[in-house]
Design a protein around this nucleic acid. Structure first.
Lengths: 234, 234
DNA sequence: AGGATTTATATGGTATGCCATTATTTCGAC
DNA sequence: GTCGAAATAATGGCATACCATATAAATCCT
């Protein structure tokens, strides 16, 4: 069933980490669920060592929690945790947007707008999948345009920790139009290179779109994106 | 010479990580220096496994960089890196201070002021050691008072990454009085619970005190704090 | 003599075995 | 019958041996 290519074992821990991350993020492992290294290692046909290191990596990313002599469990992100992390994320994205607003080239902004219109297309088609993906890409792109590597890295980590709840939220969020309007405003501010305004819009946009949907999760189990990870990893 | 207590081996990786972190942060390992796991493990009388995991932990914290099949080296924090990280740190501390300004109890603020006056005492005595320690503690305390665990954690990581340069900067910084004045202003804003003002003051305070001292490091090797880690670890 | 190729050595990556700790289950006593 | 204690099973922590790769050095060819 689940197996990882046995030849070319270089970077095994990365593959295992990616695999586990995908499954955690896609909510195939419930929060609080134990991740016994021996069992998982056997299932993936790898030894315990890369599994241990992969779990440690995910622990550093905040997706799992490792307790001494207790092992690893999927991080249980409480509603309070989600709000806290979401707040930090909004702070980081605001800072990033302000930097990007100044440093981005016209081409960068053009590309951003292209993505924005792609997303709008997905929005009009009620294509949740692509809407979600493009939304993510736009936010990540803005952070990248800040030109601050540290900011990019920290934002990425935090974003991953919130990926699951954001994904689940997107599945049931009926306030697409509001989010779209906010995105329009953000893009306009970026185009006008209005630092003050983009900060305000971004801060306003985040923190209210999907936070309140926290922990209504697992309400429906159908219509999920299949991780495809077994094929990607092998 | 360097050895770790053989009994009570619970949490060995933490001890090893603490040991290495201390030495890196105290600049006993130069940036770019290789950290061969086998050699270090032998020196510390531990096996490679906890050493590997400790290095992985430090890599996650950004203190070392691990390249595939190349091993771990002490992270070389370039001046550009320092500025980037320092900027993110200032953003985080500003956000934290704004939260703390609202959420802190009167007792919290009183304790903060007590620390502030202790620091002022150290300042008047030209006691760099305690001035530095108290300064650190005050900043960390403010972040704690934000009540945002995620913010505390991320700030802590980033702060550790900058500890070395901040420490070295403190050794030669002759602009103590300016920093002190800024601290006074921050405390005043906190006491007045003026969110707007504390954000401004904090943002102003950080980013100019020690950033420009980046990478003038290793100018003097005397008058350092000895890590004391061999005794702490054992 | 200089450069390239090959080989040797050092170092990281992975697998596995043993030991310590913890959780669970069962048996006994109240 | 229930609560507690002890034993056993399950799991993580650590050590070590083996394998793959990269870097270096040395030798050979040009």
């Amino acid at each position: 069933m689940e197996e990882i290519e046995t030849t070319n074992r270089a970077g095994l821990v990365e593959k295992v980490a990616d695999y586990l991350r995908e499954h955690i993020v896609m909510d195939h492992f419930q929060p609080g669920q134990r991740l016994p290294e021996r069992t998982l290692a056997d299932q993936l046909k790898v030894s315990r060592t890369p599994m241990r290191e992969a779990l440690k990596t995910l622990a550093a990313e905040g997706l799992v929690v490792i307790s001494p002599h207790r092992g690893a469990v999927v991080a249980d992100v409480s509603p309070a945790d989600i709000q806290e992390k979401a707040y930090v994320l909004s702070v980081l994205e605001q800072a990033a947007a302000e930097l990007a607003c100044v440093k981005a080239t016209d081409d960068d902004i053009a590309e951003l707008q292209a993505l924005h219109f792609e997303m709008k297309a997905a929005f009009l088609r009620r294509d949740r999948q692509n809407y979600f993906r493009l939304n993510q890409e736009i936010h990540n792109r803005i952070v990248s345009l800040s030109g601050n590597a540290s900011l990019v890295e920290i934002h990425g980590n935090l974003s991953r920790q919130l990926y699951r709840v954001r994904y689940l939220s997107n599945q049931k969020n009926d306030k697409w139009s509001i989010a779209m309007a906010e995105h329009e405003a953000i893009m306009a501010a970026m185009e006008a290179r209005d630092v003050e305004r983009i900060g305000r819009e971004l801060r306003n946009h985040l923190g209210k779109t999907w936070v309140k949907y926290a922990h209504e999760e697992s309400a429906q189990d159908d219509d999920r994106i299949e991780p495809q990870s077994s094929t990607e990893i092998g």
